[in-house]
Design a protein around this nucleic acid. Structure first.
Lengths: 107, 107
DNA sequence: GAACAATATAACGATATGGTTATGTAATTT
DNA sequence: AAATTACATAACCATATCGTTATATTGTTC
């Protein structure tokens, strides 16, 4: 994941409710109407959270009759963890800036 | 890390500039005045980013004469990655809610 | 001690975020 | 086909976020 995508994915996860939703989805798939009483927020609020998680790729949806079941995209979550501990190496960019004299010297 | 702390730490990281700062600090420690020309934002903006990163524990500061050098707290970053792939298990909480009849039945 | 340099804090503005209520849409049931 | 159920979208509001400029604060140098 590049920086942009990583930041976007982290933002999707950087919310207490969404974090707990992700944890819940580790146990089993859930539909919106199940999450409403658990988190005690309105149905539209849950819907928006799920929409955000879906956009970030952390969650997938499956329509099942009237319901929309959301499931965790485990690969994506793992990918995020890996990206976090393997952030792009900026040493080359830093070296170039130094060469161009665009860096301040602190010593 | 519990959910609250995890969400707070993720929020500290879920910003393009701070993410790149963290990546930079992987290469070497930096002081505020070095980061200003790199990111082309004002000095107070950099200061605030560093303050946020420091509060979240992702970064440590070392005063060195006039300068404040910031260094990456690698342990903390790794801890975050691990927490992400080992989110608290909510299956027990889910079971209790089911027993109390507080869950909707979707089938 | 006066001037300067690096950093932090304060005050402000534009935009993003996370909630609400109201309403639209799609599938199910009667 | 009318009513119901689950979900999504729209419009709105309060607060958070991220930038700015102005102003401390702290250490250095002359």
């Amino acid at each position: 994941m590049d920086f942009e995508e990583l930041a976007a994915t982290l933002k999707a996860l950087a919310d207490l409710t969404r974090l707990k939703i992700i944890a819940l989805l580790q146990t089993r798939d859930c539909c919106v109407c199940e999450l409403v009483p658990i988190f005690k927020i309105s149905q539209p609020a849950v819907s928006k959270h799920m929409s955000r998680l879906k956009t970030s790729g952390l969650v997938k949806e499956t329509r099942k009759g009237m319901w929309v079941f959301y499931s965790l995209n485990r690969d994506r979550l793992e990918e995020l963890g890996i990206s976090l501990t393997n952030l792009p190496d900026l040493s080359e960019e830093l070296r170039q800036l130094e060469q161009q004299g665009l860096l301040v010297q602190c010593d």
